[in-house]
């Protein structure tokens, strides 16, 4: 009897110990904290980054020249600007344009040259340290949006046709046709599709203090405050020559510019391969998992963009619901 009692007590003691150990383990949890630096790969800091987008029908753009920074540090492009470089753009079979540094990492040219369509431009950069970066772009055909229309929600009936910058200049924002009440109708750009690989849409809010129009009580105040005033889309094919602006791109009331960009190969490849652009329709995108991969740059001796686009745009004003 005593022996059995002893066994029972021993079993209870063992069980109690196991339960206590489990509670301690559970409360503290099994740590999987790790050295944050182990989340980053072999560093590629100090690589040359170029940024220049030629727009058909516009003057030659500013060229920005920077270097990559550490992946675990906040990045400031100005602080990583590359000074003292020779920056040259050549039009194949045409003139050579030599840029001058306007501020650290930014190079400009004063020229009356207008970027033409279907032409090849080559960039050459030689840094003060002797590094050489080259890239070429062939500009796309011009893009002309024939109609900017607001459709009924059925997606077919035209409610109103918006006025163009070419007609009214900045007065388009006051034109009655260009007043859009959130979230009524569907804004669509209609164009004769140029022969390009793809398009991008951009929406830029011009008023910095206009109020939110989205009903978003399910978002935290911080998330609501971080809703952007300007957004860009992933790549579109727009096979039917139409580009419809989704209302989820519009968060604020006020003046907006809606741009449609017809892209050259370099810009098309960069945008479609940037993880931050959100991936394709059936992939989630983002800087995680299989979607986090190196973009396609088409640049020798560095990374970044030297590309071109043809752009058309419209201005409108978003009214409160």
């Amino acid at each position: 009897m005593d022996t059995r009692l002893g066994h029972t007590q021993a079993r209870r003691a063992t069980l109690s110990l196991l339960v206590a150990l489990w509670i301690v383990a559970g409360v503290n949890s099994c740590s999987t904290d790790r050295d944050p630096s182990s989340l980053f790969g072999p560093l590629e800091t100090g690589r040359l980054v170029v940024d220049g987008l030629l727009v058909v029908g516009a003057h030659l753009p500013e060229i920005r020249l920077t270097r990559t920074g550490a992946p675990d540090r906040d990045y400031n492009a100005t602080a990583h600007g590359v000074s003292g470089a020779q920056v040259v753009v050549r039009q194949t079979g045409g003139a050579t344009y030599t840029y001058a540094e306007s501020m650290p990492g930014r190079y400009r040219i004063i020229s009356t040259h207008i970027v033409g369509s279907g032409r090849e431009y080559t960039l050459e950069v030689i840094t003060a340290q002797g590094e050489r970066l080259t890239a070429s772009t062939t500009t796309p055909p011009p893009l002309f949006v024939t109609e900017w229309v607001l459709l009924e929600n059925d997606g077919t009936t035209v409610r109103q046709t918006l006025r163009r910058f070419a007609e009214l200049g900045d007065m388009v924002f006051q034109a009655p046709e260009n007043q859009l009440r959130y979230p009524q109708g569907l804004l669509e750009a209609r164009f004769n599709r140029p022969d390009v690989l793809g398009f991008q849409l951009g929406l830029r809010g011009l008023d910095k203090n206009s109020p939110l129009v989205v009903p978003a009580d399910f978002l935290s105040p911080e998330d609501r405050a971080s809703l952007p005033r300007s957004v860009s889309s992933p790549i579109f094919e727009a096979e039917d020559g139409k580009a419809r602006l989704p209302w989820f791109a519009v968060y604020y009331a006020g003046r907006h510019v809606y741009r449609v960009l017809a892209l050259d190969l370099n810009t098309f490849d960069l945008i479609r391969s940037l993880p931050e652009q959100g991936g394709s329709a059936i992939a989630f995108g983002g800087n995680a998992g299989g979607d986090f991969q190196r973009p396609i740059f088409h640049i020798e001796g560095g990374i970044g963009l030297f590309g071109s686009a043809a752009i058309d745009s419209v201005g409108f004003n978003v009214l409160q619901p």
Partner: peptide, 28 residues
């Protein structure tokens, strides 16, 4: 795939500075 660097490009769609920097992926 780990990150290997950060850099910045103008947003092509809007022509503006982006809100943050871009993250460069290491080999897959």
């Amino acid at each position: 795939t780990p990150a290997t660097a950060r850099f910045d490009l103008l947003d092509t769609g809007t022509g503006q500075d982006s809100d943050g920097s871009l993250v460069l992926a290491a080999p897959r």
